[in-house]
Amino acid sequence: MEIIGAGGQPQTQPQAGADGDGLIREGTDQSFMADVIEPSKTVPVLVDFWAPWCGPCRQLTPVIEAAVRAAKGAVKLVKINIDENPGIAGQLRIQSIPAVFAFQNGQPVDGFMGALPESQIKQFIARLAGDVDEGAIEELIARAEAALAEGDLGGAAQDFAQALQMDKESAEAIAGLARVSLISGDADQARALLDSAPEAKKTHPALASVRASMELAGEVEGADDLAAAEARAGKAAKDPEAQFSLARARLAAGDMTGSVDALLASITLDRDWNEAAARQLLLRIFDAAGPASELAKTGRRRLSSILFA
C-alpha cells in the first residue's frame, strides 16, 4: 500500500512534538512520510490513530507509550488525531478507534484495534522487534497441550495460535494447531498447516508426530468392532492375528495405550507374523505419540525386552 501526504506532497521535515528521546511523537497527514514511512525502513513504527472523544483511546495511550519506552528504541510510536488528520486513516479504511498499525519498510505489516491489555501490547511489540519471549511461548504451548488433553479444543487452538503469533516459525505451535484440526475432523486444514511450516522445520519431531497420526487414521479404516475384537482375542489368546485385530480396533476407538498392549502381545506370540505387521504399526504409533512421550519410551523398552530376550 502506498501512503502519501495530503495533497500528494509529503513534508520532509518531521512534525514538532516528539518526546525527549524521539521514540514518541504527534503526527499529521502532512508529516506521515517523514514521521512514519521513512523511519520504518530502519525500525518498526507504530501508528496510534485516536481522537479526543474516544474513551478506549485514553485508556490505550499511556499503556502503549510505556511499552514503547520499555522497548528502548526497538520500535517508535506516532500518534495521529483522526479528527484533525482524517487523510491517512481514510486511506487505511479505519472505521473504529483506537486502531494501531505497525509499519516496516514503508508498509503496514500488522495491527490491532481496541485497548489491548499491557501483556498483549508487549507481545505485539516483541514480535515486531524480533525479540521472541521463549518462556512465554513455552508457557502458552504447555497450557495448550493441557487443554488438548482435557478435550478443550477451543482453548488449545487459542493458545497455540497465540504462540504462533509470537513465533511464526514455531513447529510446536504449528503442530498443535494441526492436531486440533485433525481431532476436529478437518484433515485438509491439518495438512495445510503442516505444509505451511518453514522448510527448515518440516522434519521437526512435533510435525512428524502429526503426520504419523494422519497416517494412522488410514490404518484403522475397516477395523473390527471393538467388542467383537475383544471377544475374539479373549478366545484366541495365542493367535497373533487376533491380537493385531484387537490393536486396530482399540486404535480406532482412540485407545493408543490399549493398542500398544495388544500389538506387543501379538509380537510376543510371533514377531514375524504377516511380515512383522504388528511391529510396523507399533512404531507408527510411537511416532504419532511423539518420541519423547511416555507411551513411546515405555513401549520401546517393552519391545526391546521382547526382541532381545
Score class of each variant (00 low, 15 high):
residue 105 N to T: 05
residue 298 T to S: 14
residue 15 Q to T: 08
residue 72 K to F: 05
residue 118 E to I: 02
residue 176 G to Y: 02
residue 134 E to F: 07
residue 306 I to D: 11
residue 235 K to M: 10
residue 137 I to H: 03
residue 192 A to C: 02
residue 103 F to S: 00
residue 70 A to V: 04
residue 121 I to F: 07
residue 156 A to T: 10
residue 182 L to S: 12
residue 230 E to H: 04
residue 284 R to T: 14
residue 105 N to M: 13
residue 144 A to L: 10
residue 230 E to L: 13
residue 221 E to K: 15
residue 40 S to M: 04
residue 146 A to R: 15
residue 36 V to K: 03
residue 105 N to F: 13
residue 134 E to L: 13
residue 60 L to R: 08
residue 182 L to C: 07
residue 167 D to G: 06
residue 24 I to C: 08
residue 291 P to V: 09
residue 98 P to D: 02
residue 234 G to N: 10
residue 255 D to V: 00
residue 245 S to D: 14
residue 281 L to Q: 06
residue 113 M to C: 03
residue 277 A to L: 02
residue 135 G to C: 09
residue 187 A to Y: 05
residue 71 A to T: 07
residue 309 A to E: 15
residue 300 R to D: 11
residue 155 G to R: 05
residue 170 S to W: 02
residue 131 D to L: 08
residue 198 P to E: 05
residue 305 S to L: 14
residue 114 G to Q: 04
residue 257 T to V: 09
residue 7 G to V: 03
residue 92 L to I: 11
residue 275 E to Y: 04
residue 187 A to F: 06
residue 107 Q to A: 12
residue 130 G to V: 04
residue 207 L to A: 10
residue 290 G to L: 12
residue 305 S to M: 15
residue 12 T to N: 12
residue 301 R to W: 03
residue 133 D to P: 01
residue 256 M to T: 11
residue 285 I to M: 08
residue 122 K to A: 10
residue 243 Q to W: 01
residue 28 T to Q: 11
residue 177 L to K: 11
residue 219 E to C: 07
residue 182 L to A: 14
residue 166 M to Y: 11
residue 138 E to Q: 15
residue 243 Q to H: 11
residue 20 G to Q: 14
residue 198 P to L: 05
residue 225 D to L: 06
residue 66 A to N: 08
residue 240 P to A: 09
residue 186 D to K: 12
residue 283 L to E: 14
residue 36 V to T: 07
residue 183 I to A: 06
residue 92 L to K: 08
residue 120 Q to F: 13
residue 37 I to H: 09
residue 19 D to F: 07
residue 177 L to Y: 03
residue 159 D to V: 03
residue 32 F to C: 01
residue 271 R to S: 14
residue 300 R to N: 12
residue 175 A to F: 01
residue 95 Q to Y: 10
residue 42 T to V: 10
residue 213 S to P: 01
residue 306 I to A: 10
residue 82 I to Y: 00
residue 93 R to A: 13
residue 114 G to N: 05
residue 23 L to C: 00
residue 31 S to N: 06
residue 99 A to W: 01
